[in-house]
Design a protein around this nucleic acid. Structure first.
Lengths: 348, 348
DNA sequence: CACCTTCATTGAAACGTTTCAATGAAGGTC
DNA sequence: GACCTTCATTGAAACGTTTCAATGAAGGTG
């Protein structure tokens, strides 16, 4: 028994396929009773629309592409991004629509561009979602140029407005820095993601603003950046401990980096807490299990990702960018008592 | 300028669409020179096959569905599964084929079954990949019943053979247990995933075999199971420390659980190393940054996942199950010196 | 009653492929 | 030269939708 089609329903009810099609989509032109009857029969027969035919006809793909970056810089390292959550968030937003999620795994920028070209040129999706916006992001330039709908996780420096969901890194970094200054810290390190990411700048800005407000001079040596992995965190800590004037605290960009810093501190014999303070930024609430658990700025990734999906739908509906932009504030989770900065510099 | 179709090529070359279609697929019935000419023009025009039309006609979807489980039991907890890697692995296997990846996020078993029904009944994909096989897995029963191609990550207890890639949990658990016994441990705990998972049994089997070989009696109180999260690890450790006869070591099912155990140990004041030994199982090489870094059994998830993709393609090609089954052995990574078990029991 | 509107329905074309029976040209055999 | 094969190509149907101009019935107006 073949899969029921619009034609089966037509035959069964006696209405033409045109009417059936209209009825199923609830068009106003169909008499309510007719519509109900047809829909009833459709359910009875277990009818499901054939997406391929639909797509062919309408030239829509009913598909949302998600670009998943899998870095080849550090293939063995965890980057602290839980795509499961991101996908679940997007997924929950598009449940009950006709849309499906297509995932494209990309290794680098060239790969991403080639993939976008396949998607746009080949009609593989109606819209794209991607993360980690760059300064002068070529993906955004390309998609805006093509007029192809997209939502980015992370704002951009593009002059033309577009849909995005962003974590307010600047405020989080500002708050974290202020917090440390209040505790008496003067030498504060910023453990940052790669410099070509937009949010690296946002974090730096927040950090520097806080220092400037407190009239503390900035020191470039205190800012370390690299892939958002534990390895980077570990190396960062080791490098910082080589300085003549060592920091007494650091602010990490994500959980993986925090883990690396803690690991390096433990190896070096630096006691996190009394000697050195670590502040994290969390996606997963994972850092509460670190030793010791650091104070953190938390952003609920799944909820955030749901917004990505919702904005995507709005975009596809032709919504104005102003309706599809949102900055998310982090929640502070205090895990360490407010230990004041050590009175004398670390001597390691 | 619209997207070029087979018809554009037909017009341009003068050959009929039928010939063009055949030529593009390299059918033998087309004269080589004709074929070359058509293919040249196709490239020239930037022709790309319209997948929707193709699918409609052939009734294939050229799509592989991946079920991503996102547990709602512990929505806030990290389950230690990096889907990015799994997707990247599968992705790399199907690059250069016509297949694409569709991701379906499912919350629980019912959800998974409903999703499968949509996929199979709606022709949303040609094959399915999913993880974490259960005892008496309803997904496997359903798919085998429908004769729908699938590859599972994890073997099953189904009586009919099917494609799978599995991590050899039993051997890893056996080896870990033997290792601890050699170090003098007699009270060894197994921190296990939920009991309905096939690999929970495999781990238990390996563990019990090792104990039996050493003529050490088993104690049900030493086996704790729950979602593969840090929370479970933490609670497990706390529970174990309530026992009169406490264990001196434990074997965790994944990195998240290990992290939880380490966290609980630190809070309880138990010194991991001298007082208590932790052995982990790694997907991500993340545990090397734990404090202290535990010895671990590592399985390279990305490579493993590539196999999932390759087996899927073979299945779709009608390969025999015997060609699409593989058990992966873990690699031992020793991170702790071989500290013998403490001579006297823990007193916490 | 002739005419116009409104409303519900129909029928056919179109989307871009694949597939397959039919066509016709070229070459071989007797 | 009549007949049969082989080979390359053609033309049209089919896949399951949506869309839109056309149809016709019912109701309203003068």
């Amino acid at each position: 028994m073949a899969r029921p089609t619009i034609k089966s329903i037509s035959k069964r009810t006696g209405y033409s396929v045109g009417t059936v099609s209209n009825a199923l989509r609830g068009a106003k032109s169909v008499k309510p009773e007719t519509r109900d009857e047809i829909q009833r029969v459709a359910v009875e027969l277990g009818y499901r629309v054939n997406l391929d035919a639909l797509k062919l006809r309408t030239n829509k793909s009913y598909r949302i592409a998600v670009l998943v970056g899998v870095s080849t810089d550090a293939p063995d390292e965890w980057e602290g991004v839980e795509f499961t959550r991101i996908l679940a968030g997007i997924s929950s937003a598009i449940t009950r629509t006709r849309y499906e999620l297509s995932v494209f795994s990309v290794a680098n920028s060239d790969d991403a561009m080639a993939t976008l070209d396949r998607i746009v040129g080949g009609g593989l999706a109606d819209g794209v979602i991607f993360t980690a916006t760059l300064k002068n992001d070529p993906r955004i330039a390309y998609l805006q140029d093509k007029g192809f709908p997209f939502v980015s996780y992370g704002m951009s420096d593009s002059t033309r407005p577009h849909a995005f969901v962003d974590f307010d890194s600047q405020t989080a970094a500002f708050d974290a820095t202020v917090r440390l200054i209040r505790l008496g810290h003067r030498r504060i390190s910023l453990v940052n993601p790669p410099e070509d990411l937009i949010y690296a700048d946002q974090r730096r800005q927040g950090y520097e603003n806080a220092l400037a407000t407190a009239r503390i001079s900035t020191d470039p040596a205190l800012i370390v950046s690299g892939p958002t992995t534990a390895r980077t965190g570990k190396r960062a800590f080791q490098t910082l401990m080589q300085l003549d004037d060592k920091p007494s605290a650091c602010i990490c960009a994500n959980e993986a980096m925090t883990l690396g810093v803690l690991s390096a501190a433990a190896e070096t014999g630096v006691r996190v807490g009394p000697d050195f303070t670590v502040i994290s930024t969390d996606d997963l609430q994972l850092s509460r299990y670190f030793v010791p658990p650091p104070t953190t700025y938390y952003v609920p990734i799944e909820e955030t990702s749901r917004l990505l999906g919702e904005f995507m739908l709005k975009c596809l509906d032709g919504a104005d960018p102003s309706e599809t932009q949102k900055k998310i504030r982090a929640t502070l989770i205090e895990r360490q008592p407010d230990i004041p900065a050590p009175q004398q510099a670390l001597t390691t």
